[in-house]
Write a protein that binds this DNA or RNA. Structure first.
Lengths: 128, 128
DNA sequence: TAATGTAGTTACCATTTGGTAACTTTTGGA
DNA sequence: TCCAAAAGTTACCAAATGGTAACTACATTA
């Protein structure tokens, strides 16, 4: 019953960092904001497929975490600008690394998805 | 209506890499396997809190993606060993970077969680 | 004879998650 | 007078997700 040398305990940093990876959009919102402050509409257009609901929900979450600052300009029509806080900037660092890796390794992502497709086909042939 | 310079399109690598981050346990399983081949029971003990169901489910998924190799030893009681494939090794690279960052920045994670706690308290005071 | 160890499956359930569509607010402009 | 623009909220719903607990298989061992 050899215990493994490496245990990812319940509250280890490796698990806790998943906070910013949990939501479908969280890490993408942070990543986009790393290019500078942005208005709501710009964020919306930078993330094709996101709904108004998910955008505001995600922004409220990262704001609660102190990662993003929300600045309201009291004008009509409304203007709201979001930007990373210093803490947010720190958290974007590992995300950028992750995304840079992804851009440099698109071929590996292709391979992964080919494998998944093939194994899904094989599974459906079984069911016939 | 200034279009943002940075658009994370539906099928860009930055979005696609989320495959290995989607499941609650996927990235952790890969990370643990980066230390070498392991038997099911060892994996289970390396990931406190995981259930048998989620462990096998996650292993089947990464196996389908070609990230992990499953080797069955035909003995009694059963013995099965999991190991990273070459493709899996490539995918662990950015995960290790992410987890290394987390280990080096536990203080930032503390700060994040403090903020969340505080804002949750403030929200519940509202509701009284 | 019955329990043990190892890997895995299955049925079932509760919660979470994310999505859609309609609605609100305010003021300047056609 | 009525619409547009921007940011946001709300009600509602379907699907995905993850968890528990009980069950299987089978040779060895007590």
């Amino acid at each position: 019953m050899a215990e493994p040398d490496f245990i990812l305990r319940e509250n280890c940093p490796q698990r806790r960092i998943h906070y910013i990876l949990n939501g479908k959009w969280t890490s993408m919102v942070l990543s986009v904001l790393s290019y500078g402050p942005m208005r709501t509409g710009q964020l919306e257009r930078a993330l094709p497929g996101i709904s108004k609901k998910m955008l505001t929900q995600t922004l409220r979450e990262v704001e609660s975490g102190g990662l993003v600052h929300r600045e309201v300009f009291h004008v009509v029509p409304p203007k709201v600008e979001y930007s990373l806080t210093p803490l947010g900037i720190r958290f974007v660092e590992p995300l950028s690394a992750l995304y840079d890796w992804a851009k440099d390794n698109a071929a590996a992502l292709d391979e992964l998805e080919d494998n998944l497709r093939r194994s899904a086909e094989a599974a459906s042939k079984q069911g016939e």
